[in-house]
Design a protein around this nucleic acid. Sequence first.
DNA 1: TGTACATCAGTGAACGCGCGTTCACTGATGTAC
DNA 2: TGTACATCAGTGAACGCGCGTTCACTGATGTAC
Lengths: 208, 208
Amino acid sequence: MKVTKEQSAENRASLIRTASRLFKTYGIDGVGVADISKEAGLTHGALYAQFSSKDVLAAEALAHGLQQSTAKMRAVVKEREATLDDYLDSLLSKKHRDSIASGCPIAASGSEVARKDKAVSRSFAGGVEGYAGAFEATLGPAATTERERALAITAAVIGAIVVARGVAKADPELSEEVITAARRVLGELGGSNPRIRRRTTLTKGATN
Amino acid sequence: MKVTKEQSAENRASLIRTASRLFKTYGIDGVGVADISKEAGLTHGALYAQFSSKDVLAAEALAHGLQQSTAKMRAVVKEREATLDDYLDSLLSKKHRDSIASGCPIAASGSEVARKDKAVSRSFAGGVEGYAGAFEATLGPAATTERERALAITAAVIGAIVVARGVAKADPELSEEVITAARRVLGELGGSNPRIRRRTTLTKGATN
DNA sequence: TGTACATCAGTGAACGCGCGTTCACTGATGTAC
DNA sequence: TGTACATCAGTGAACGCGCGTTCACTGATGTAC
């Protein structure tokens, strides 16, 4: 049952996509290789023909999810440059909190990833740098450096989503409060950047 | 083999303490009831005599760990009132990053907890309120309310530890950078509180 | 205080189950001539 | 272009293993009299 190179590559991509979605939804330890293969329309044997172990697939799935997430961030606006507010609006939202399957994989599996191997950690670090780089480009001068604020914002956004999801079942009000609070406080960290200032002061209530 | 009420209560407490430590270290899904019972010096049957399921034990272990963590926070200083800097120094440190077994359970298992039941979520929410309350008491007036900053700081601290642990294997420098950056940026969120200002300006370099 | 006995915390064998991984096999692909 | 055949992606049965949970049993505790 050999398939064409193209089909094989597509199967591989399908396994990664499916794994990314399921790992985020149920946790890496919460999904079996059988579930992943089945939902990708293959058998687990095919999965092992493509990946040497579940952990190797996990590292690839994490990298894929992060790539997807940072791409989504950069695509928030076309034409004009993105602002910190653009990024925060999309990341710190009830929508992001509730779409775990398509959302940020660090927020979905962050504390699990800390226990996986170096390959997984490498994917993770790449994602963190991706986020921080995107944030940094939107920041202006302030008491702390742009790099410092970018890293702090990255950590804070992830923490806010983790916390908002964790408390959601027991205390939905607190969950929303965490998102809103993080949104407002982090929005203040822009610094004296014309792009930020324009959006939060000049265009407030403007038609365009 | 019935034991005294006191012994039974002690066994229960031992199971909770052991579970809290092991769950934080290996993840909730990463530890079996056999491991927990064995390390507490009992059999898994005894565990089921005390808790109706592993998830019920998980909720109790989480609550225990959070209680321990917030107690530790409030005990950072005796006599004088704690400042934001006191809390941040102890929470945003390499020591906390590397002591997962005795550290904050939200940072250790945050993203796993989001998939557990309402009892677990309730423990989680209690812990978040505990942290936020402690932070709030140290804050002064600023552009955002004390409550908002307290919640944002809570989320940011957790996110920073999760991220620092996640990238540690692949990129130790980035890991430290995240902690330091979060420490500096969050330190700026104190507001016009005399306790904060005194510590960061007046006593800088002073002997006492 | 002393005796009889119900209680129930803890034991350990056993349960079915799903896990990650291996492997002999299949048969279409794609290459060598 | 046509034929022969090596390759190898994918199949599916089988592996040992550890999981969470159940349950008949034990025997010291602690209560009723």
